[in-house]
């Protein structure tokens, strides 16, 4: 048996170790979520991130080294986005009938997401560059980072705010909708997708396939609309 310190030096630098750690942390988090009957507070993304953050911090591993391995999982976000076409196709009859509420809710939700976030942070005295990084926080990371860069925000901060919003939305959607007495899975899923992009969509697919389909539509449409309205709205703040 070779020296354990040398073995660790090899493992800590190997993509295989961090890829396996990512899948293992998620498997543990998903097991907990299942054990809790998918209670929204036991969010698998949040738990897996906390486990990995603890591991990276305690082993002093830089995020870049971690990402060398984790990128193989991250890469699958692209094919998974393409795969949203399948539930959209299967539920197209339901979606086609709901086009008026889809576009009305999209417009209301997109404007609320941007104005409420920027408004609250502005009241608390956040500087312009933080407001710019915050404005697109409800849309999928790739689009949000592009918008942030365009209007003078920091894309890395935007990525963090986007992920935080996703986890918050996934945790809040079920209790909020139950409190409002809303049982329409189209509306619940669509709200999850508008407010909290892919992580909200992942939660919606966990609950109901129709909710997941509507969340996927919301994620795509809100990405487009927010890219159009944020540069216009942020102009007023300068």
């Amino acid at each position: 048996m070779s020296d354990p310190a040398r073995l660790w030096v090899f493992l800590a630098a190997s993509p295989l170790f961090w890829l396996t750690a990512t899948v293992a942390a998620y498997a543990a988090a998903d097991w907990l979520s299942q054990r809790a009957n998918r209670n929204p507070l036991v969010n698998p993304v949040l738990i897996a991130v906390l486990l990995l953050a603890a591991l990276l911090t305690s082993t002093r591993t830089p995020y870049e080294v971690y990402f060398e391995g984790a990128q193989f999982v991250h890469f699958l976000l692209g094919p998974a986005t393409v795969a949203l076409a399948v539930p959209l196709h299967r539920n197209w009859a339901t979606v086609r009938r709901a086009l008026p509420p889809i576009f009305a809710a999209l417009a209301a939700g997109a404007v609320t997401a941007v104005t409420s976030a920027v408004g609250i942070a502005w009241v608390f005295g956040a500087p312009f560059d933080v407001l710019a990084a915050l404005a697109p926080k409800s849309v999928t990371a790739a689009i949000a980072m592009g918008i942030s860069q365009e209007i003078g925000g920091n894309p890395a901060l935007t990525a963090t705010l986007v992920i935080s919003t996703g986890v918050l939305g996934a945790i809040m959607v079920t209790p909020l909708m139950n409190a409002l007495g809303l049982t329409d899975f189209r509306a619940r899923g669509f709200a999850a997708g508008v407010a909290s992009h892919g992580i909200g969509t992942a939660r919606a697919f966990q609950v109901d396939p129709v909710a997941g389909t509507f969340a996927g539509i919301a994620l795509g449409l809100n990405g487009l609309l927010t890219a159009l309205i944020v540069p216009l709205m942020i102009g007023w703040l300068r």
Partner: peptide
């Protein structure tokens, strides 16, 4: 789908 957000989330 949730798994795929873990690497970015760890950022």
């Amino acid at each position: 789908l949730s798994l795929l957000f873990v690497p970015a989330g760890t950022g």
